[in-house]
Design a protein around this nucleic acid. Structure first.
Lengths: 226, 226
DNA sequence: CGTCCATTTGAGGTGGATCAACCCTAGTGG
DNA sequence: CCACTAGGGTTGATCCACCTCAAATGGACG
């Protein structure tokens, strides 16, 4: 599987985040080698209920974590963007599948070695707990969105989240298609498209290509969110 | 609030718990005193974004954890039943509010003391991480339910969950009302009621009182779940 | 400059919400 | 004991936000 280039370190991550720094810090501090690896667009990184062999950090690109129902209905639980850690599990298996949305490179460390370090270093153990708690916080917010928000509120929340996480010079380049957004928000791709068109018509956002979005009025967007 | 009350209320030292009681095991192991406390029906245990002073375990009764939108729409993220730990946060504040559904008694320990122990004992730190991960797993399953399941599938999932968690002699006594169930499943109370009536008409479940339910055919219920 | 998706837009259908009675049943008090 | 009451639950009628199905448009890439 990991037959590709084994480059180490000197990795540049666009927006430096606390969590990502922690991951890198952990890896360096305990002398774990963070291997780099690449995935093509739509390539599976791991499947649902698959053995959790590695923990990953997005270096560039984007990843979707999701669950499927037997008939193919899909719920994307999270998007992982540069700097984000994903696939971290205290249990044996991954609870969601993960796929690269676009060509994506990741750093990874063996879960076993991370666990071993956490077993002796309380600081590391604390950070792993905090990372999982961060994921839980996001999931709790997302349950509120999925259970109780209207389509427009969901799309507004999504835009504000993406703006916060990947806007560069007030422009965001969405890596994911409308279907991915719909499967994240519990909507159909058509409903997402209609909501975006409506926001465009109201001057709240501007397009330069369907996935290049500029928020022109964050306040009004925030008001549309509940 | 709680601190003040504790000074005036009689405090019982919690009795020993069953073997499977992880929380109690931790508390005893590190010599923390778990105090017992009671809440009346619908009494708030803590509010959203309130300082997380204590970690709780349900002794008897039931608790709902929820988030509210500004206009009152509510999403219940989890029900906590006897044995369950709730209010565990590595951060400073609670991400959801918690209320007693019925008269409920809990054991609680100060978060600070738990944190202190976790800072020196990796076994405890590992257990706390695993608990948070367990909550995350539930939230991920619930996101799939809220984003992608039909009303009947949601109710079927709910019944199987409650059957697993609180059935005694194949009978379950639901502590929560239809509105709570609706707010947990992202439905209205009427839709929940209609789904239950339909399952009753199909002979899949029996009632003895609206909240006393017997599952007569778990297999068919499982088939109705996706 | 044609092919292939992704996206947008339109038209119509529907599952669950909303609004509105009505009906239990547990609790209360006479 | 029974009558009364109030809150929870059920059921019915109607509505509408979002889904489904369908077609047109656009954009990226050979």
């Amino acid at each position: 599987m990991l037959t590709q280039t084994l480059k180490t370190e000197a990795i540049k991550i666009a927006p430096a985040r606390p969590v990502s720094d922690q991951f890198g810090a952990i890896a360096r501090h305990v002398g774990l080698v963070a291997t780099e690896f690449s995935y093509r667009k739509d390539e599976e990184i791991y499947g649902e209920d698959e053995l959790a062999e590695y923990v990953y950090q997005v270096v560039s690109g984007a990843v979707r974590s999701y669950k499927l129902l037997s008939d193919g209905r899909r719920q994307i639980g999270a998007f992982h963007l540069p700097g984000d850690v994903f696939g971290l599990e205290p249990g044996q298996t991954h609870r969601l599948a993960a796929e690269a949305i676009i060509v994506t490179s990741v750093r990874l460390v063996a879960r076993a070695s991370l666990e071993r370090v956490a077993g002796t270093d309380v600081q590391v153990a604390r950070k792993l707990w905090a990372m999982t708690a961060g994921e839980l916080r996001h999931a709790e917010d997302h349950m509120l969105l999925l259970g109780r928000k209207t389509a427009m509120e969901r799309v507004a929340t999504f835009l504000l989240e993406m703006d916060r996480r990947l806007a560069v010079a007030s422009m965001m380049a969405l890596p994911m298609c409308r279907r991915d957004i719909g499967d994240y928000l519990g909507l159909t791709l058509e409903t997402v498209s209609r909501a975006l068109s409506q926001l465009h018509a109201q001057g709240i956002l501007g397009f330069s290509g369907a996935r290049q979005i500029v928020l022109r009025n964050r306040q009004r967007l925030h008001n549309l969110d509940a």
